[in-house]
Design a protein around this nucleic acid. Structure first.
Lengths: 289, 289
DNA sequence: TTCACCTATAAATATTTTTTATTAATTATA
DNA sequence: TATAATTAATAAAAAATATTTATAGGTGAA
C-alpha cells in the first residue's frame, strides 16, 4: 500500500473533486480515479458513494474509517520527513519560552558551551503554547516548557526540571498587610501576560473563581516589561517565581486563602524522538538541574 | 513511499539479516537491499551502517529515527486493516468484562434487542486488562471497562457510564463493629480476584500502605465464586459494589480510615474509531445509562 | 437542447519493483 | 591456511504497478 494513494484520498475528500485533486498534485485526473480504485480493491469495499456525480464525493462508512487512519499515517509520515531533514542537516531546533529561558540558560550555559552544544542548537523563541504546537507538528525537536498541566496525551515525553510557584506581585513602594486575601485585591489594577502564556489561564481561573482581578488594564507578552510596570507601581500582577530571580523593587504578596497550581518547568519532546548524541547531551544537561 | 518498504526495514532491523528478511517475506534477497536503498535515496541518508558485513545490521541515528516512525505507521496500517475487515463483514466485536457485564447488560437488554443489536454484537469475554490490550491492538471495536484510572494516553475515547465504589465484604454470619479500621482486619483470611482485574491492584495498594491483608489465601478470576466463598465465611474480600447488586448473605464492612479510589465503569474505544450506525446506537444506549 | 464540465474506462506508456544471475567480501571449518 | 559456505551488493532483465493520453458517457447549467 502506497502512502501516495492515501494522500490522494485525503485530498480528494477535502476538495470533493477528482479533477481538482489531480490538478493539486499535478497529475492527470484518471490517476486519482485509479488511486481510489486501488484502495477499494485492497480493502475490498467501496470507499466513495457514487451517485449523481459532479462534486459529490461522499465517503462510505469504510471510507470514513480509512480517512481517519490515513490522516494519522500521513501525520507520522510528515513527522518522519521533518525529523530526517534535521538529522541530515545536523540541526537541533529547540524551543525557548522567554521566562524559563532567562531563568535556566544561565544555569547551564557553561556546560552547553563546554560540550560544544551552543552552536549546534537553533533556538526558536516563542510562547509555551506555540512551542507545543511546533513540537506537535514536527517543526522543532525539543523545547523548554512551562505549564501547569502535565501533558498526558501520549505524544510527548518530558523531564520535569523544576517545580515553581505562582506569586502575586506588587511594587515595593506599596504597603500591604502581612497576610491578605484575594478579595483584598479587588480594586487593584492588574497587568498580565498575554494569551501565549499559561499565566493568563491562571489569572482567568482566579477571576472566575473569586470574581476579582476584574480590571486588567494592560496585557503584554514581554514579561520584563510587565515586571518593570509593576515595579513602577502601575498595577499588580501574577507571575511564576521563575521570573523573579534577580528583580529589585518588587514584593511578593502573601495571599493566604488561595493556592495556585504548581508551575512545571520541563524539557519536552515527541515520544517518537530518537535523540542523537548531541540532543541526548542537551537532555542530560537540562535534566541534571 | 511504500509501506512495504517500511515493513521490510523493520523486519530487517529485527532479524539483522537481509537473506532471512527476504525469506520471511517470501521474496528474493536483492528485494530487501533495494528496499533499503529506496528509503536511503528518499531520505538522502544512510540508514544502515555497512561495516564488516555478515549479520551486523546496525542502524544509524537516521535509521533509528525512521524505525520509530515506521513502527507507528505500521501499527496504524494494521489497525486500518483490522477495522476495515470488520466493517466489510459488518461485525461489531465488543469486549465484556465479567462483573460489569452482569451489572449492565440487564439494564440495556431490552433496548439492545429492540434495536436489533443483540445479534450484531460479537461478544468477547475477558478481564479488563486483556480487553484494553485487544482494543489497543485492533482486535475489538469497543469494550465495557472497569478501571480506577482514566486512560489518558490519547489512543482511547470513552464515555463514563457509572462511578462505583469499592467495598470490603464479609459473610453475614460474622459480627463486626459498626465502624472499623483497616488494621482491625489484620488477621482475616483474604480472598481476591486475580491479576486480570483491577481489584488486585487495589488490594495490593492497601497491602503496601497498611501492611495488612497479608494472608491472601485464595485467588480466582470468577467473581461469583469469590462471592460464594465470602458468603460461606471462607474469608473477607474487596470488590466493587458493581458486583453486589443481588447478593444475599454478604455484608459490607464500614471501614472509616481508608477511602478507595473510584471505580469507573466506562464504554471505551479507539479514538480513531469511526462508528457505523449500529456501533453508534450501541454507544448511545450505554451512554444514556 | 446544447455546451461545459465531470468521472470512468481502455490502451499505451512510463515508472517502479522484483527477480535472476553474478560478484566480492567475510566467516566457518576441514 | 585453504576451501567451502554464506552474505550483501550490483547489473540487467522481467514483472508488476502507476500514470498518461484519448475518449466515452453522464449531469447540470444556460
Amino acid at each position: 500500500m502506497n502512502v501516495k494513494d492515501l494522500k490522494y484520498f485525503v485530498k480528494l475528500q477535502e476538495l470533493k473533486s477528482y479533477s481538482d485533486t489531480a490538478h493539486y498534485f499535478g497529475v492527470s485526473q484518471p490517476t486519482i480515479t485509479y488511486a481510489v480504485k486501488r484502495l477499494e480493491t485492497e480493502y475490498q469495499t467501496e470507499l466513495i458513494v457514487r451517485k449523481s456525480y459532479a462534486n459529490s464525493v461522499t465517503l462510505t462508512h469504510a471510507g470514513d474509517q480509512i480517512l481517519a487512519h490515513a490522516k494519522k499515517i500521513l501525520r507520522e509520515d510528515h513527522l518522519m520527513q521533518k525529523d530526517l531533514q534535521r538529522i541530515r542537516d545536523s540541526r537541533i531546533k529547540m524551543g525557548f519560552p522567554p521566562i524559563i529561558t532567562n531563568y535556566l540558560v544561565p544555569l547551564v550555559f557553561d556546560q552547553l558551551r563546554d560540550n560544544d552544544l551552543l552552536s549546534r542548537i537553533e533556538p526558536v523563541r516563542s510562547g509555551s503554547k506555540e512551542l507545543l504546537d511546533k513540537l506537535y507538528n514536527g517543526d522543532i525537536d525539543i523545547a523548554l516548557l512551562g505549564t501547569t498541566r502535565i501533558p498526558e496525551n501520549g505524544n510527548f515525553d518530558f523531564n520535569i526540571i523544576k517545580v515553581h510557584n505562582f506569586k502575586i506581585i506588587a511594587s515595593s513602594e506599596r504597603q500591604f498587610p502581612k497576610e491578605l486575601k484575594i478579595r483584598d485585591l479587588q480594586n487593584e489594577d492588574v497587568l498580565i501576560l498575554d494569551e501565549s502564556s499559561v499565566h493568563q489561564l491562571i489569572v482567568n481561573n482566579i477571576i472566575e473563581k473569586y470574581n476579582v482581578f476584574t480590571n486588567v488594564i494592560y496585557q503584554t507578552s514581554d514579561y520584563r516589561l510587565l515586571l518593570d510596570l509593576v515595579k513602577r507601581n502601575k498595577g499588580i500582577s501574577l507571575i511564576t517565581e521563575t521570573a523573579l530571580q534577580v528583580v529589585e523593587g518588587i514584593q511578593e504578596l502573601n495571599v493566604v486563602d488561595e493556592t495556585f497550581p504548581p508551575f512545571y518547568i520541563m524539557l519536552i519532546y515527541r515520544s517518537s524522538l530518537k535523540a542523537g548524541p548531541h540532543t541526548q547531551k542537551i537532555i542530560d544537561i537540562f535534566s541534571e538541574l
